[in-house]
Design a protein around this nucleic acid. Structure first.
Lengths: 352, 352
DNA sequence: GGTTAGCACTCTCCTTGTGGGACTGCTAAG
DNA sequence: CTTAGCAGTCCCACAAGGAGAGTGCTAACC
């Protein structure tokens, strides 16, 4: 494509992203200072329109980018911007407490995506089945129940209360024994193992102690390896959609979709390709509700997904930069904590 | 007030809640079958209008209730409805797992409020400072960190990761010692105690072991006795506001308010009066954003609040019934679990 | 062949006007 | 206190017209 035409397209996209208004040939000349006449621009526009990259809202209006135009812009004309100082600072702040339950970490990340981008931020937790067990611990709460904490390379991935009447010492012993035996296996392997043992239990092959252990283990894992979706900054998104004059009915559908974490999560997972940054513009999205929106996302960890959700008229440069940056950061934190837990920040209590 | 006038008011409110439309004197006659003429109704309407209970949108339109009219309706004419079988069933289902982390329980409750009412449901956690400690447990995770679990009469109220290099046995010992010593005190007393000890530590009065214990305790409690707000069913609310033809700008402000859990939480707390059911209609709410909305709420536990948020044109009967029912239910669960933990539901693992 | 000036044309948007319809308020009588 | 009858008010939907913005086309120009 002709250099001037690219420039015209870029001008139209930039102007539209900034103002939301169509750009006329004259205004383009005035604001972007090309050294040709408006008629020439009009000819270029006509060509771009025939290629489907821009369109007019009615016959005598200026031009706005089509989704195809945005696509071209994102693929060929996008320049990622650097993070500003305060942005960088906010990032550091939020990730200070590194060793924290996975849940907290991911929620923080979603907040950060939303806060920095000005759109809605989301984080889909990784497939916990594929992370490796570090330890499993039982803590007696009262006569009838105990807390189980499952720690994987990603941090605490599960804590729940189980009904059991086993005494404290035995629970501790079982925890140690299971951790010893299963450390390093993936959680889905662990679950299978537990299921196998419990299934065989009826035939009385194993000693009662082993049996209790695997029964507990199974209860601990039965629910809740399900993935969770964290979304934040919803009102950012509403603000933007308001400016777009999107109807409340569409907005409601979007909000509903975000609350259906399974459906939305599965869609997100289907859209990632390793940890490459992806952009899905408007009706490129298979989900009907997302038609007024664009999605910037990337994968992390084992099939985890994070990104931002904004209107089609989105600042793609900003959204992409931030998503990429935070995504890499989260990936690094999760990878780091796998090998060597990061240095602690809070005042440390030393052995006396 | 005259019996017929009450009936007229009730008809107008019922009709408006059901359809959202003004009611004319003729339609009232036809649908509610009074044995007078439309002119008589018109006279009554005139009187009700002068009392500020109803209004017309323009000079020749039918009447709609004013907020004052709704207030009168709620105070004097409201009949609470019974829960239907399926509603009751849903309630039972959700509360089956009784011994669960407080966080889960409250989130469930918010979901339930939203699901049954068809509006948005919210639950503000109780003041944890005023609940009594049951136990505090430390679990070694790796060389540099440990998990602390704080259990109060309300269940698990805190779990977080602390940096510490103390060995596992010592942590266990410290947990036992602290639990023994502090069981039955409120969490704020516990926190004060910890602060006092740590402050005195510089003067070297206590042995190092005690010092470590209180230092850990302080870290465990420093953050996060903060209250949390759980909101669910946001899209229910959007759906209703859509029917009300509320503007997206107002909706955005409401969504923003719901995300500012501190501000909204403080407002909620200021509105409760023991565990009496409260209704705040439209601009009775001090918060500007809530003007298009009504709030049905009640207190539970120590300054906990739960309820539903819907449009001013809300089915107050349903909303009040459900809030009251669920509120009592939650209160009961929390009170019960205080004395004797409820019977477990999942298959129990017996000592072998 | 690409570029330019000039002009007719198209479409939106805003304002104004008009008629029908839905209810009320008033008055006077029962 | 209640009722019938009727004038009056206001909304709403639709149509018409004028201003403004910007394009498309044509013919000339470099």
């Amino acid at each position: 494509m002709d250099d001037r035409k690219r420039l015209v397209l870029k001008a139209i996209v930039d102007h539209y992203i900034k103002t939301g208004r169509p750009l006329s040939s004259q205004t383009l000349l005035k604001e972007y200072g090309l050294d040709v006449s408006s008629a020439t621009i009009r000819n270029d526009m006509k060509a771009l329109e025939q290629e489907g990259l821009i369109a007019k809202e009615y016959s005598s209006a200026g031009r706005v980018p089509t989704e195809k135009g945005f696509r071209f812009f994102v693929d060929w004309l996008l320049e990622l911007s650097e993070l500003t100082r305060p942005e960088e600072h906010a990032l550091m702040e939020s990730y200070r407490l590194q060793r924290q339950p996975l849940e907290e970490l991911l929620k923080q990340t979603a907040l950060l995506l939303a806060g920095l981008s000005g759109y809605a931020g989301f984080v889909l937790s990784p497939r916990l089945e594929e992370t490796r067990l570090e330890s499993i611990t039982f803590v007696k709460l009262d006569e009838e129940s105990a807390l189980v904490v499952i720690l994987s390379e990603l941090g605490i991935v599960e804590h729940r209360i189980l009904p059991t009447a086993l005494p404290a010492e035995e629970l501790e012993e079982i925890g140690r024994w299971l951790s010893e035996r299963l450390r390093g296996r993936t959680l889905s392997e662990v679950r299978e193992e537990a299921q196998r043992y419990v299934a065989e239990a009826g035939e009385g092959w194993h000693d009662p102690r082993t049996q209790s252990a695997f029964q507990l283990l199974q209860s601990a894992l039965e629910r809740r390896l399900e993935r969770r979706l964290y979304t934040e900054g919803l009102f950012n998104l509403l603000q933007k959609l308001l400016e777009e004059e999107v109807g409340l009915a569409e907005v409601r559908d979007i909000v509903r979709l975000l609350s259906e974490s399974v459906r939305f999560g599965e869609y997100l997972e289907s859209q990632i390709d390793d940890s490459k940054l992806q952009v899905r513009i408007g009706s490129e999205n298979a989900l009907r509700e997302l038609r007024p929106c664009s999605l910037v996302l990337m994968g992390y960890g084992h099939s985890g997904v994070l990104g931002v959700l904004g209107p089609v008229r989105m600042d793609y440069s900003k959204a992409c930069s931030i998503t990429q940056y935070i995504g890499n950061r989260l990936e690094a934190i999760l990878t780091l904590s796998r090998r060597a837990p990061a240095a602690a920040q809070a005042p440390e209590v030393r052995p006396s």
